[in-house]
């Protein structure tokens, strides 16, 4: 047995725990076998010691969810090791499409009229109005170059960081994630500046000047987003 020399698995200790570099050209079976052996040999820590985080870097290998689970279980059985992250350079086409949908800005030029619902997965850039009784929904942020007089729901899948921006902010209702904010019953005076709505530290939706967003949500820019 000269498997040891092949070095499919390289272990490095860091201040965050262990980083395991897994070869991405050998077969999956060989990889698992070597992992098993290496970890058994290296099991020098006292079994009751604190949990050690393990970070896996699998390079250009795609691991199916089942394979990921197998590796996690294998490592977990080595007493005090626990997988904290698995990093791969590759994702499936399907995941890529979902990622694209969730992070792209969809531009729509139309008036969302009473009874109509416009729903996008990522950010929404609406060039037009949302009339009373109309609804816009986005998984991400909502930017409206026009008047918001209907309902807007940003961060639809649970993102409280999402914001709603409108040139004219006169909504019937604002929702961000699962937080709701009804329009005041009294008629607010018309303000002539762009406004934004966000969730503050008290878990409430507040409406304020657009310019505040630079400080409140510095990562609004798309380029800085990641999977």
């Amino acid at each position: 047995m000269n498997r040891q020399k092949q070095q499919y698995v390289t272990i490095k200790g860091t201040k965050d725990g262990l980083t395991l570099h897994l070869d991405d050209t050998c077969s999956y079976r060989d990889l698992v076998m070597e992992l098993e052996e290496k970890l058994s040999v290296n099991q020098t820590n006292e079994p009751d010691g604190p949990l050690v985080a393990v970070h896996l870097k699998v390079g250009n290998r795609y691991l199916t969810p089942e394979q990921e689970e197998e590796i996690r279980t294998l490592i977990r059985t080595k007493k005090n090791l626990v997988v904290e992250s698995i990093e791969s350079n590759v994702i499936t086409k399907e995941e890529a499409l979902i990622w694209k949908r969730e992070t792209e800005i969809v531009s729509v030029s139309k008036i969302v009229r009473s009874g109509q619902i416009l729903h996008v997965q990522g950010d929404l850039l609406l060039i037009g109005d949302v009339n009373p009784g109309g609804t816009v929904i986005a998984g991400g942020n909502i930017f409206i170059l026009g008047a918001l007089r209907g309902i807007a729901h940003a961060g639809y899948y649970g993102n409280k960081e999402a914001v709603i921006v409108a040139s004219v902010m006169k909504p019937m209702q604002l929702r961000i994630s699962d937080i709701m904010n009804r329009a005041p019953d009294y008629k607010a005076e018309e303000r002539n500046e762009m406004e934004c709505a966000y969730v503050d530290d008290n878990n409430q939706i507040v409406v304020d000047r657009l310019q505040l967003l630079t400080h409140l949500r510095p990562h609004l820019t798309r380029l800085e987003r990641r999977l």
Binding site: I111, R113, S114, G115, Q116, N131, P132, G133, G134
Partner: peptide
């Protein structure tokens, strides 16, 4: 006006 808006949406 609300109903007109709804109808316009359908007509469009």
């Amino acid at each position: 006006v609300r109903d007109a808006d709804r109808i316009i949406g359908l007509l469009e």
